[in-house]
Simulated scan of single mutants.
Amino acid sequence: MRVPNQYVKPSTYTTAIINDGNEHLAGSIQFNTADVRSDTLAATDVSVYVQALVEAAEDHLNGDDWREAAMEATPCEFRPAGSTATGQQIITMADRTVTFDPRKNWDNQTISKGAVLAGSVIFTEPTDKALAISHRVTILDHNLMAGFTEGSMAQTADKILRDIELSAAGKIAAILSTAPSTESFSVAKPTGKPVEIAEDLIDTLTMHINQTVGTELSDFVVLLPVSLVAVLNRAAQRAGVGDLEDLIGASVQPYSGTDYGLFLLPKLFTSLSYREGRDGNVWKIQATRNGAHQCWDLEIMAVVDIVANGKVKVKLTADGLQTDTVAFPMITNVKLT
């Protein structure tokens, strides 16, 4: 066992000599106390770290694994460069009266409510705001000069991807909170132990299911604040189930940032439309050397449209001869107050 501060005879050394062309020589000598080749000293090279991080992000985000995971999390499409998001046409499952901006019919009557009959077709289109996901990470040279390991790099990559996922979901929640097809309700925030809070939340979501776009929670993706994840996971442990998705009985996507409440996104009526670049990749990942601050800037970017605005035709006259297209509430937003 080596004693701290004890002198150890160097076993190997490497030298580097630089000639600037003016007979001014400069160089360095590095000594090692183990049988280490110079080509294995890359664990202190910041450029190697950045290159490995970029390659790992490229392989994952622009590979089949990420696309499969994205489709499991939320309904989505990956469309070629230059194309538009694909709208959907789905038939409603139940009658419903919708309220909309006042419209006038041919008899100069102002109509603000109309019946949407079962079997009517709902058209979906992208929201008026698309989401540009853009995150930058600054990797300072002096933070890595002491060395790094494969494990620390994997932890860093996992943390970056998780932060991007939660932040992007938060931006989606912000867009949905003001979308015309979002119907909002306010309920009292449940209190008590995790099991009690979870039961109240599940009951609340169940009572606010939009029966025209789904019949049970499994027909929806639940978008919820990340602050509820620990509570619901603890309740899942107490209930003896695998995780919060098994507990709720629906797909779950946490989000960070401002708390907009919980959202019920119908799987058959909403989707995310990711834009591919001309190279066929959804994500653009690039590393730029920032010499002024002795660091590397790693940028990860993507653009996604949110296909969540519902449109439907309603009657403005009793005989049905005059109809108009209005916004149809498909997404339920439950605000906890």
Score class of each variant (00 low, 15 high):
Ala239Leu: 00
Thr191Gly: 11
Met153Asp: 03
Ile202Leu: 01
Trp296Ile: 06
Gln253Asp: 00
Thr270Gln: 11
Arg238Thr: 15
Asp297Arg: 03
Leu232Glu: 02
Phe269Trp: 02
Ser47Cys: 01
Trp66Thr: 04
Asp319Pro: 01
Ala174Asp: 11
Ala52Val: 05
Glu196Met: 07
Ala81Phe: 12
Gly277Tyr: 05
Leu298Trp: 11
Leu224Val: 04
Leu217Ala: 10
Asp259Met: 04
Asp319Ser: 07
Leu272Thr: 02
Ile306Asp: 06
Asn19Cys: 04
Pro126Trp: 04
Ile17Ala: 02
Asn32Gln: 14
Trp106His: 11
Ile202Lys: 07
Ala70Leu: 07
Thr110Ile: 12
Asp39Thr: 07
Glu276Tyr: 01
Phe31Ile: 15
Leu264Met: 12
Arg103Trp: 08
Pro194Glu: 02
Ala174His: 14
Met145Val: 00
Pro266Asn: 12
Lys104Thr: 09
Pro254Ser: 07
Ile248Thr: 06
Ala56Pro: 12
Leu262Ala: 09
Val226Asn: 10
Thr84Ser: 11
Val314Pro: 05
Val303Met: 10
Asn309Ile: 01
Leu298Arg: 11
Trp296Ala: 05
Ala230Met: 06
Cys295Met: 10
Phe148Val: 08
Ala327Arg: 03
Asn290His: 04
Ala179Thr: 12
Gly291Leu: 10
Ala230Asp: 15
Leu117Ser: 15
Ser218Thr: 07
Thr325Tyr: 00
Ala235Thr: 12
Ser112Arg: 09
Phe78Ser: 01
Ile175Arg: 06
Ala52Asp: 14
Ala157Tyr: 08
Gln322Pro: 01
Ser134Thr: 10
Ile197Gly: 06
Val195Gly: 01
Thr182Trp: 10
Gly151Glu: 13
Glu165His: 04
Glu58Leu: 11
Glu68Ser: 05
Gln88Asn: 05
Ala42Leu: 13
Thr97Asp: 13
Thr149His: 15
Asp35Glu: 15
Val222Arg: 06
Ser184Leu: 01
Phe148Gln: 02
Pro254Trp: 08
Thr84Glu: 13
Tyr260Thr: 03
Val195Gln: 14
Gly214Thr: 06
Leu161Met: 14
Ala146Trp: 00
Asp128Gln: 15
Thr97Pro: 13
